[in-house]
């Protein structure tokens, strides 16, 4: 019945997470350097080339910053047992998980209920928007049904 991981397993998970984050940071940094040296460039066929270049560079810097924060946070947690325990509690807190699960389920239901009439109404104005809306609703509905089926089997 014990589904919780031990602190050692959690430390290993953070270590693996940091490995992935570290690799992402290196790759993104190399791409940024190459872009700065104009070895690689975003598509130039847009009328807003400068804006687009700036947007891509800014996004990359933002993601790099977020990754670096995550990397340092994990590193700090791995080096301090109390910090590790706190971080574990925060990530596996049952109330937070319940809030996330219920929030996501409600959000998905509301999305489907609102998107369906919205897609039908949009059909009077644009075929593309109608098809996109219906496709999004269908895709989400299938994902929700599959998730329901999975947990129905899992929870017997």
């Amino acid at each position: 019945m014990n589904t919780q991981m031990t602190m050692e397993q959690y430390r290993k998970k953070l270590k693996l997470e940091n490995l992935v984050i570290g690799a992402s940071i290196v790759i993104l940094f190399i791409v940024q350097v190459l872009a700065f040296c104009q070895v690689i460039q975003p598509p130039q066929d847009s009328r807003f080339v400068d804006y687009w270049n700036g947007f891509i560079a800014g996004s990359a810097m933002g993601v790099l910053l977020l990754l670096a924060i995550g990397f340092i946070r994990n590193l700090r947690a791995m080096r301090n047992q109390q910090e590790l325990q706190k971080w574990y509690n925060k990530n596996y807190d049952e109330r937070s998980r319940k809030i996330a699960t219920q929030g996501q389920a409600s959000g998905a239901r509301v999305f489907v209920l609102l998107m369906l009439p919205a897609s039908i109404i949009s059909g009077y104005f644009s075929v593309t928007v109608f098809i996109t809306g219906v496709a999004a609703v269908l895709a989400l509905s299938v994902c929700m049904a599959l998730g329901k089926l999975y947990y129905k089997r899992k929870l017997g």
């Binding site: 919780q4 574990y88 509690n89 925060k90 596996y92 807190d93 049952e94 109330r95």
Partner: peptide
């Protein structure tokens, strides 16, 4: 208490105020 039982302080607050019912293991 939160640290000892593996949850956040907010969860303990919610349990104490009756807004949240703890799971059986907790």
């Amino acid at each position: 208490l939160a640290l000892a039982v593996g949850v956040t302080r907010q969860t303990i607050t919610s349990i104490e105020s009756g807004r949240y019912i703890a799971s059986l293991p907790l």
